[in-house]
């Protein structure tokens, strides 16, 4: 199914929200593993998001302009004897996307509440008589 241009899938919204949470904690730049851990924590799941799924979504978000990335200074990585990180940052457009997603969710909840209020209450099901058989 082709998605609407500019719309975000749940994982992309979750990544933006996780990035926003990290930003509130004072971590403005984050790498893939840290966002995967934050997603796991926020979603209360047992597993981290799969490599392919996570980095494909991060790529899409960067193309949409909701995130921007840069490679870490190789000297820092070398000093800590580890591979260089790709550091992501939430943009202003990303923050706006979170606000839009939250608003859309609220509107959907409101519509759902109104719809359920209009629905007739379901009649209670009569209990099946004992000894009944289909034959």
């Amino acid at each position: 199914m082709r998605r609407k241009p500019g719309s975000l899938v749940p994982l992309e919204i979750a990544i933006c929200e996780a990035a926003s949470v990290l930003q509130q904690r004072g971590i403005s730049q984050f790498h893939g593993y840290s966002i995967a851990k934050e997603l796991k924590h926020a979603g209360d799941t047992r597993l981290l998001t799969a490599y392919g799924t996570l980095y494909r979504a991060l790529d899409r978000l960067e193309q949409m302009g909701l995130l921007r990335s840069q490679l870490e200074d190789p000297h820092i990585a070398a000093a800590e004897s580890r591979p260089g990180r790709r550091l992501y940052e939430l943009t202003a457009a990303g923050q706006q996307a979170i606000a839009d997603a939250a608003q859309a969710l609220n509107e959907a909840r409101h519509r759902h509440t109104k719809r359920t209020q209009r629905m007739k209450p379901i009649k209670p099901i009569k209990p099946i008589k004992r000894g009944w058989s289909p034959t």
Binding site: L47, L48, A50, Y51, G52, L54, Y55, R56
Partner: peptide
């Protein structure tokens, strides 16, 4: 965890 993340992500890697 690495193994599961690797295998679950393969379709997305190919699509990427």
């Amino acid at each position: 965890e690495i193994l599961v993340r690797l295998f679950l992500g393969i379709p997305d890697d190919i699509l990427w």
